[in-house]
Write a protein that binds this DNA or RNA. Structure first.
Lengths: 203, 203
DNA sequence: CTTGTAATAGACCGACCGGTCAACTATATT
DNA sequence: AATATAGTTGACCGGTCGGTCTATTACAAG
């Protein structure tokens, strides 16, 4: 008794898959419509522009992935640094599977869009910025708990800045893996995230 | 007595500026020609495709920037970690200036291209991969010297992996700065690069 | 049954895309 | 001066782009 997806949902899913595998500019509205089995008139009935669709896609997919990845990783059940290590392991698995199935390490769908469009499309840049903020929030909460509980040497760190730095490092190693088209780069560089620390200004 | 640039050079410079400020897909051959003051026929006299031009642009601009940035930073005259800190400081200055002059933190020209095109254009992906390799080589040499001289706690690190990790972190913080359109992110996150270490497998 | 609205259909638009081509000019060699 | 080659010109090509428009269908409320 499969509840069939709505037209809007098919458009969003198709757009995400195509844009993630290629790029925003490379994927036309016509291609999205074809993949979704929808005519152009319907597309523009739901979205007033390709940009508006992109923003909807980013928001919806992030909500999904936050539930399926972030919230299942940062549960507060394990030591902070263990959860962070698990997070990187999951990302390695995802990119590794992508390499096997598509032939390419596709990287971070939000980072990809940010880099392609940040200097050209302010609403999209802001949307990705907000998505990044929420992702970092999960890491920060994790670190805060670890610091409060005196785990590892987390006590005394600047939790916010350290979470930012860890997330930046994550995006960096994903970028390297994509550039090398090799997910193993993630595995190789992952351990160093656990040593990242930023301390308050005058420490 | 300005030696006027050749047609090829004007094409390369124009292409770099436009693509860096926007994106590969967004900048058409016609726009590059117009900015360079060249007709389309001339363009295709020198380059058989837009892709071939892009590869030439990447190589030429990297050679230039390696001379002007990498080679002037990693001189071997200072402590290894001081040179790395100086490197990040220079990158902050560059992105900060870009923000002032163009209104946008444009990020890493090679990383931008890598993310936009790696999954669609293998020759370009390989070119950026090679550029990254050469950049990391500069960092590795710096770290190797530091390790040999027992600077800081560099002795015993996996120099190659640590150089990879530091470069990844650099690309990550540049990505964050671009996404936030704020170069200060680089300044804030820069110090953590100095603590990054990866040790040999069974350490 | 009627009426209003949401959804679908698909032809159509001007602009632009990367790339081609034949003709022309400039320059160097003999 | 004749020839060959490198460089330049700009019109032209088929195809695709994001987006519009009018007509038609599906459906829900009265």
């Amino acid at each position: 008794m499969a509840i069939e997806q709505t037209t809007q949902q098919r458009i969003i899913d198709s757009a995400f898959e195509l844009i993630y595998a290629q790029s925003y500019a490379e994927v036309g509205v016509a291609a999205i419509c074809e993949k979704a089995g929808v005519k152009k008139g319907s597309f523009y009935h739901f979205y007033k522009s390709k940009q508006e669709l992109a923003i909807a896609v980013l928001e919806e997919k992030f909500i999904q992935q936050k539930s399926s990845i972030l919230d299942t990783t940062f549960t507060g059940e394990h030591a902070a640094l263990d959860e962070i290590a698990l997070f990187l392991e999951k990302i390695y698995q995802i990119q590794s599977t992508l390499k096997e199935t598509t032939g390419h390490v596709l990287g971070c769908p939000y980072g990809n869009i940010a880099i392609e469009l940040s200097s050209q499309d302010e609403p999209i840049r802001k949307k990705v910025d907000h998505i990044f903020s929420r992702s970092i929030h999960s890491i920060r909460d994790c670190l805060q708990r670890g610091a409060d509980e005196n785990q590892s040497d987390l006590h005394g760190i600047d939790v916010t800045a350290t979470a930012d730095a860890m997330f930046a490092y994550l995006e960096g190693i994903i970028l390297m893996a994509k550039t090398q088209n090799n997910a193993d780069a993630i595995k190789k560089l992952a351990p160093a995230i656990l040593n990242i620390r930023i301390y308050p200004n005058n420490a």
